[in-house]
């Protein structure tokens, strides 16, 4: 509940900054033309009005003591989130996105699938075996048969391995 209010306020701040930023950085438009800054600024004005209504609705919907309790619980709830499997999943996702091009598909896919599968409570043997099989099927399916570019990675031996796998089907 606290997050909702915080997000609304953050949206409002970002919108106000963007309003100023667009006005400052765009060339001045003709008196009779809709310039590059006016359309986003018009949207921002509408957005600010909608956010104001939403915040008003938030205070109407929720009782004062509930809001106070939600804010008192905000820091502990962040702590709970940081130790949850969801947060570990989020970290894994970002790590996978970062390493995807560096390690290549053949290494990233099984590592991510094993990691995510284990945090989802999968049996280790099942998760590992399925991760390897799925990586193989996806790589061959997309890279070889569908001609979809998949990264081979920047690490020399991983790149060589990817090329070796592809050569098996050429």
């Amino acid at each position: 509940m606290a997050l909702e209010l915080i997000v609304n306020v953050l949206f409002a701040i970002a919108a106000m900054y963007t309003y100023w930023y667009v006005g400052e950085t765009m060339p001045e438009s003709d008196a009779s033309e809709l310039g590059a800054e006016q359309w986003p600024q018009f949207l921002i004005v509408l957005l600010l009005i909608a956010i104001a209504f939403n915040i008003r609705g938030y205070f109407k919907r929720n009782k004062k003591e509930d809001i106070t309790a939600a804010f008192a619980d905000f820091v502990p709830s962040v702590g709970r989130l940081l130790t949850s499997k969801l947060f570990i999943g989020m970290i894994l996702l970002i790590a996978m996105a970062y390493l995807y091009d560096i390690l290549g598909f053949i290494a990233t896919c099984p590592l991510f699938m094993i990691g995510y599968g284990l945090i989802l409570g999968g049996r280790p043997v099942t998760v590992i075996v399925s991760a390897v099989i799925i990586t193989f099927v996806l790589y061959i399916g997309f890279s070889v048969f569908l001609d979809v570019m998949l990264p081979r990675g920047d690490v020399p031996f991983l790149r060589s391995f990817a090329l070796f796998v592809e050569s098996l089907f050429e």
């Binding site: 091009d101 991510f112 284990l118 989802l120 990586t135 997309f142 998949l150």
Partner: peptide, 22 residues
Amino acid sequence: PYAILGPMIIMMATIGAFATKN
């Protein structure tokens, strides 16, 4: 199990996102 299906969906999504412009 979702422990297999979930990560597989993300990897397929990743293939789709990467292949847009490589």
